[in-house]
């Protein structure tokens, strides 16, 4: 009852004010985009806590998830949820594999953050190339383009898959908070992100835990890759874009905290969409990076400014 009267009220408002309708639609659009950025930022942050380097290959896990879904759905005709599960697990395992094969041996050698970043660029190139060789480099929608289902919320609209994105964002946020703060596993994760040396002395198996971090973080990126693929489509190079926006959201929110990444995603999305409205659609990426530089210069700790998780 409250919802209907609320939306009725909004519609009343908007008959009077076309600008209000536009503002609400932009707000909703921001919430949708914030979900993509938020999940990418939270999953990125999770792995960053344990490893302290910018993993450029993280975005590629989104492409792995999306394409595995595509393969299972198109070629093996698995049921929808099984395809989603398969895509998520494939992304998670790929993430774990990159850690076991490349990052873990490099960590043992004491490689710097810059080295790990350069190697992760190599992994990104390899994953993109392999996907393109299997599936071609063209863009492919995961859902039929012609089927359009969207809901009216007050004067604004949102599609079914976008509703799923928003819910995923909220669930991942709640789930990560629970995992990190309410479970033993989470306490261990936080212990190693605070100090790996101490954690090792205390007998925590850091590499096993970091492996789990990679798996969960990549799996979440894979899930977002599938959702983005269902909303628009997948292409082998989609990961880099997903990652950059995720990293920016994580930094402006406060790099090592889950709430920071969540808030950062929303802040970035809202700024971008306001910018699109005010300056035009061509400036979206420039706005994102100007925001990033502004934060790095004037508030490097991010919006929530927490140095601990």
């Amino acid at each position: 009852m409250t919802f209907y009267s609320f939306s009725g009220m909004l519609q009343c408002l908007c008959k009077r004010d076309k600008g209000m309708e536009l503002f609400l639609q932009i707000l909703i659009n921001s919430v949708i985009v914030a979900s993509i950025y938020g999940v990418m930022a939270m999953s990125f942050t999770l792995a960053y806590r344990g490893t302290r380097f910018f993993n450029m290959a993280h975005g590629a896990m989104g492409a792995v998830g999306g394409y595995m879904f595509f393969f299972l759905h198109q070629n093996l005709s698995w049921p929808f949820l099984a395809c989603v599960f398969g895509g998520v697990v494939a992304a998670g395992l790929t993430g774990l594999l990159t850690d076991r094969l490349v990052f873990m041996p490099q960590r043992k050698r004491g490689a710097s953050g810059a080295v790990l970043l350069v190697v992760s660029l190599g992994i990104l190139a390899v994953i993109e190339a392999v996907i393109a060789m299997i599936f071609s480099s063209s863009f492919q929608p995961l859902a039929p383009m012609g089927e359009i289902t969207s809901y009216q919320i007050g004067p604004a609209r949102i599609s079914e898959i976008q509703t799923w994105m928003v819910m995923t964002n909220l669930l991942v946020f709640a789930g990560m908070l629970f995992l990190l703060y309410e479970t033993k596993f989470g306490r261990l994760l936080r212990a190693i992100s605070d100090d790996q040396e101490v954690a090792r002395i205390l007998g925590i198996r850091t590499n096993l835990l970091i492996g789990w971090m990679f798996f969960i973080s990549a799996a979440l990126a894979g899930l977002m890759g599938i959702l983005v693929g269902l909303d628009t489509g997948v292409e082998p190079t989609m990961g880099f874009y997903l990652l950059l926006k995720g990293v920016i959201a994580a930094i402006i929110g406060g790099i090592s905290g889950v709430p920071g990444a969540f808030v950062g995603g929303f802040f970035l999305a809202f700024s971008e969409n306001l910018g699109v409205w005010a300056l035009g659609g061509a400036w979206r990426d420039a706005i994102a990076f100007i925001l990033l530089l502004g934060f790095l210069l004037f508030r490097p700790q991010g919006i929530l400014g927490s140095r601990e998780g």
Partner: peptide, 14 residues
Amino acid sequence: VINPGEKDFRSAIA
């Protein structure tokens, strides 16, 4: 005018 590669046109449409 919108750059190639853009996938989110929702605010421009609004």
